[in-house]
Each structure stands twice: as C-alpha cells, then as structure tokens.
C-alpha cells in the first residue's frame, strides 16, 4: 500500500520546481530559456495554490490559478514577440549582450 500524497509532498514538489525555475532565470544566458524558467516558476506557484485549495477545501485557490495561467499566456506571447525582435536585430539571444538600457 502506497502512502497518501499529503500537502507536504505537494509543497515540497512546488518548492523544488521553484528552485529549478529560479536557478534557470538567474544563470541562463539565452532569453528563450529564461522565459522557459519563468514559466516553471509560475507553474510551481500554481501547484502550491492547487495544493492549498485541496487541503483547505476552498475553490478560490483554483480560481487564482486560472488567472495566473491567463496572465502567463499573455506574458509569454509578449515575451516571445520581444525575443523574436531582439534576435532579428542583434542576431543572437544572449541576455548579457543586451545592455543598452543603462546609465
């Protein structure tokens, strides 16, 4: 008999996903991969929402997830459009070389 999946398991998974996403955002040089890592961050947050929702028996957490997904979809659209334009203009997608917006 397998042990039941408790809130703690779900939160641990969510934390793990968050850490993976965070490291990706901080260390990756490619803008596409940074965006991808951002999506993992959002998913980890979504997972935490759903886990709490189930454990507390309250649907509002799940509603929140829908909102996050919608916003994430929009954000990805804009982010990918920007990434496309950057790659056309600069010829690559290296975040370290995009340093025009500074003092």
């Amino acid at each position: 008999m397998t042990a039941p999946i408790t809130l703690s398991h779900l939160l641990a998974l969510s934390g793990l996903l968050f850490s993976i996403g965070l490291v990706g955002v901080m260390t990756r040089r490619n803008i596409l991969l940074i965006l991808l890592s951002l999506e993992i961050l959002l998913s980890s947050a979504n997972l935490a929402f759903v886990a709490f929702s189930r454990s507390l028996g309250d649907l509002s957490g799940q509603i929140m997830v829908f909102f996050v997904m919608v916003v994430a979809a929009a954000e990805v659209t804009v982010g990918l459009a920007i990434a496309l334009l950057i790659s056309r203009k600069a010829g690559n997608l290296n975040a370290d070389e995009l340093r025009n917006l500074k003092w």
């Binding site: 955002v25 901080m26 940074i34 975040a95 370290d96 995009l98 340093r99 025009n100 917006l101 500074k102 003092w103």
Partner: peptide, 10 residues
C-alpha cells in the same frame, strides 16, 4: 543601473 536583466532579477 547596469542594464543587465539578470542583475536586476538578483
């Protein structure tokens, strides 16, 4: 203000 996106994220 370095212009590095990941610097800001850090």
């Amino acid at each position: 203000q370095t212009g590095k996106v990941q610097g800001y994220a850090a």
